[in-house]
Simulated scan of single mutants.
Amino acid sequence: MPQHRIFATKFASVYPLYVQKAERKNRTKEEVDQVIRWLTGYDPAGLQRQIDQGNDIETFFAQAPAMHPNSSLIKGMVCGVRVEEVEDPLMRKIRYLDKLIDELAKGKAMEKILRR
């Protein structure tokens, strides 16, 4: 089965779209970074390194220090698909991130987004 094309997309090309989506709703780049770091375990330098190196999304998630143990608590719909029902582990991680950015853009409190 061929891989989905999003896997080969550069994270650096998707990242500004996440920031734009958040900023349109009066959220900040720092909040986007906080959400990404919470999910993946990257520190600020590690996240910036991934962007600067131009790694694809598959590599971005493969090199993530540690997916947050509460990431399995992320539930809901993204693009008409239930996040918790996505079978492919990489696609599920991508959908987790999409869902978190959606919640940020919708004005949800950071404590709830980070599943505290």
Rank of each mutant, 00 (worst) to 15 (best):
M1R: 11
P2C: 03
H4N: 13
R5N: 11
I6T: 08
F7C: 06
T9P: 01
T9Q: 14
T9V: 10
K10S: 10
A12H: 02
S13Q: 14
V14D: 04
P16I: 09
P16W: 08
L17E: 14
Y18E: 05
Y18I: 01
K21I: 05
K21P: 01
E23K: 13
R24C: 07
K25Q: 15
K25G: 02
R27E: 09
T28H: 09
K29G: 05
E30D: 12
E30A: 15
E30T: 14
E30M: 03
D33N: 15
I36D: 00
I36T: 15
R37H: 04
W38A: 00
W38M: 03
W38E: 00
T40F: 06
G41H: 09
D43N: 15
P44W: 08
P44H: 10
P44M: 11
A45E: 15
A45W: 05
L47E: 02
L47W: 06
L47A: 04
Q48D: 14
R49G: 04
I51V: 15
I51G: 00
I51P: 00
Q53C: 07
G54A: 12
N55Q: 11
I57L: 15
T59A: 08
F61I: 01
A62N: 13
Q63A: 12
P65R: 05
M67R: 09
M67D: 07
H68D: 05
P69Q: 09
P69W: 10
N70A: 14
S72D: 10
L73T: 08
L73F: 06
K75H: 12
G76Y: 08
G76A: 07
G76S: 08
M77E: 13
V78E: 04
C79Y: 13
G80E: 05
V81A: 10
V81N: 08
R82G: 01
E84V: 07
V86Q: 14
V86P: 00
V86W: 03
E87A: 15
P89C: 05
L90A: 03
L90S: 02
M91Q: 13
K93F: 04
K93W: 05
K93P: 01
K93M: 09
I94H: 03
D98Q: 14
D98A: 11
K99H: 13
K99Q: 11
L100V: 06
I101A: 03
I101L: 07
D102E: 13
D102V: 05
D102G: 03
E103K: 06
E103L: 13
K106D: 13
G107S: 07
G107R: 07
A109H: 12
A109K: 15
M110N: 06
E111Y: 09
I113Y: 01
L114P: 02
L114M: 12
L114V: 11
R115P: 01
R115Y: 11
R115K: 14
R116K: 15
R116Q: 15
R116G: 07
